[in-house]
């Protein structure tokens, strides 16, 4: 497995991969699916490119996975790729959620539906956690990035401070420090 992307997918292929992820990602953790499909299985993007895109997608407003789909699509196929990424990750599951909405009262009568979905949701956390571990391991080297990571985790996860403020404060300090570091180098 080489880390450099070897082939670029066609627009149709890209659409099909995004749709499949949109349609099979029960229980959440969609970004984890994207990492798995685009980096680990197909090597269309390097891990580095993916993690950079993920950091940008999270910092910008908008649903993360939609941002990610546009970012990845654009990287692979420019404007057409961005459109295909957006449509693939949104439209097929949008149709499915309406269909499920129509059948809801029939499905909800069985307690087995709840149990099956709770189990899938638990397993889906693995996708997010393994992506989080990958992202944490590949943080730029040095003490400062680790402090930023730990402070973000503590303030958001444990103290439950508002995400937006943590992002603005931690993000600008961290980016400012990196910028100064690059200016000196």
């Amino acid at each position: 497995m080489s880390s450099a992307p070897t082939e670029r997918p066609t627009a149709l292929r890209l659409f099909l991969v995004f749709s499949r992820i949109g349609l099979t990602s029960f229980g959440g953790g969609l970004s984890g699916w994207l990492l798995r499909e685009f980096v680990q299985d197909r090597a269309w993007l390097s891990e580095e490119e993916f993690l950079n895109g993920l950091a940008i997608s999270q910092a910008l407003p908008g649903v993360n996975v939609k941002n990610m789909a546009i970012w990845i699509g654009y990287r692979l196929r420019g404007r057409g790729g961005a459109i295909v990424g957006f449509c693939g990750i949104i439209l097929p599951p949008a149709i499915v959620i309406i269909l499920i909405g129509m059948m809801f009262s029939a499905l909800i009568r069985f307690p087995i539906t709840h149990l099956a979905l709770d189990g899938a949701a638990a397993a889906a956390i693995g996708l997010s956690l393994s992506m989080g571990i990958t992202a944490a391991r590949r943080v730029p080297r040095g003490l400062f990035p680790i402090i930023v990571l730990a402070a973000t985790f503590l303030t958001v996860g444990i103290f439950r401070w508002p995400l937006v403020w943590v992002l603005i404060v931690a993000g600008s300090i961290s980016v400012g420090v990196e910028y100064a570091k690059l200016a000196r180098a």
Partner: peptide
Amino acid sequence: RWQRALESGLRPVAAGMILAAVYVL
């Protein structure tokens, strides 16, 4: 330079946010 600073600056924040979301979940 601004791009590389944004990327390497935001990556620890993103990693912290993902892990925090997982913890809450």
